[in-house]
Write a protein that binds this DNA or RNA. Structure first.
Lengths: 207, 207
DNA sequence: ACGATGTTGGTACAGCTGTATCATCAACGG
DNA sequence: CCGTTGATGATACAGCTGTACCAACATCGT
């Protein structure tokens, strides 16, 4: 079997296995042996591609961040077309909610990493800021665009709204995760919030 | 030494030690030996008062929830007096932000527990819902009160705003925790949000 | 005064963790 | 065609974890 192997591919597969295991049993409970089993390789292999556990966890975080970027920006291109800004933004924020199993694990693990970052200096230097910042920029731009099209209520500050909306979305996401409310209820709160930001009667506005 | 000892008091002290250790090194890294050392007792003692680690963690969560209730409702009684609803609510939400070290550890650990609850069924049944629900009720009541005093912009739904504000506060809290923004910046976003809820010129409104 | 009881200390144990070591095997370069 | 090298497997190891066990000791009821 031992031919030359694509390291990057291998590492990605193992990192993916890490994410799967962490989603199932919690990031704190993940062990290298279990990751190896999930990836269908030997423990030694995991050691081979990521020398240490810390590096493995780091790789998992990066993979997660990639997903975040993809998932978020995957909904933006559609905005360039003729859809109403209101609809685009709502779709964006809805996608950030833990509805399907995929976004559930994303929320779960991202929060896990964030918690670890509070005490682990190495993790604290990781891209915990970049991705959210980028999201804020994107959403802010969309809102500014809507304001320029005179679709927002007067006195609205796009930047502050963007930050607030994303923070709210994150908070709602956590509450859904712990079972305090359903994803639908959270989406409803989001919808209400947007109704209060957009001018009544703006395209895409509900009711 | 062995006289009759107040179990409740002892348990509280040890739980407090758990919280201190967890705040310093992360909830995932906490061990019974370290808790014992922090509390200044022997490992055996920790075992004696909490037979198992799981029960110790549970006790820590309950202690944390108590703090939450105290901290939150400690600001409410003052509301019964003559202070403007706007000021009371802002103070409330500000208090929920990780400003001082105390609220930092609260945010940190509460989030840690929430993350654990996703995979641990025993934790999932704990009061993760009750306290936040109570907070939503309280804040909702305050907003309703403000609306009845005609201090809110027309069309505002107190309940939805309460849920949204608390979710936003939680999300902002996390962002402060991971160092994405300062507590002051978060408070500023909160202030802006309240300005958009309260009628311009309502008592306590900024600018 | 004395035994029962609540409280405490010391310590051992089994299991799991991440990591290191040694050996093997396939493939390619010369 | 052979040795160097990349890739993999098996296994050993030291450390830490939560938990269990055993002994001691002060206090209280009688």
């Amino acid at each position: 079997m031992p031919k030359r192997v694509d390291h990057g591919e291998r590492r990605a597969a193992i990192a993916e296995a890490l994410i799967k295991v962490a989603a199932r049993r919690g990031l704190h409970a993940v062990g290298m042996r279990e990751v190896a089993a999930e990836a269908g390789v030997s423990l030694r292999l995991v050691q081979y591609y990521f020398e240490t556990k810390e590096k493995l966890l780091l790789a998992g975080l990066h993979r997660l961040a990639e997903r975040f970027g993809e998932r978020f920006s995957a909904h933006v291109p559609a905005a360039e077309e003729d859809r109403a800004p209101r609809a685009v933004i709502e779709a964006l924020l809805r996608a950030a909610l833990p509805t399907d199993e995929d976004s559930r694990t994303f929320h779960h693990l991202y929060t896990s990493y964030a918690v670890l970052a509070v005490t682990d200096p190495e993790l604290a230097r990781q891209p915990f800021i970049k991705s959210p910042d980028a999201a804020e920029d994107t959403l802010g731009a969309l809102l500014r665009q809507a304001r320029d099209a005179d679709q927002l209520r007067p006195g609205t500050d796009p930047r502050s709204e963007a930050v607030g909306l994303l923070a709210m979305s994150a908070g709602l996401g956590t509450s859904v995760l712990v079972g305090q409310r359903t994803a639908e209820a959270a989406a409803e709160v989001l919808r209400y919030r947007l109704d209060r930001i957009f001018r009544p009667g703006a395209p895409g506005t509900s009711a």
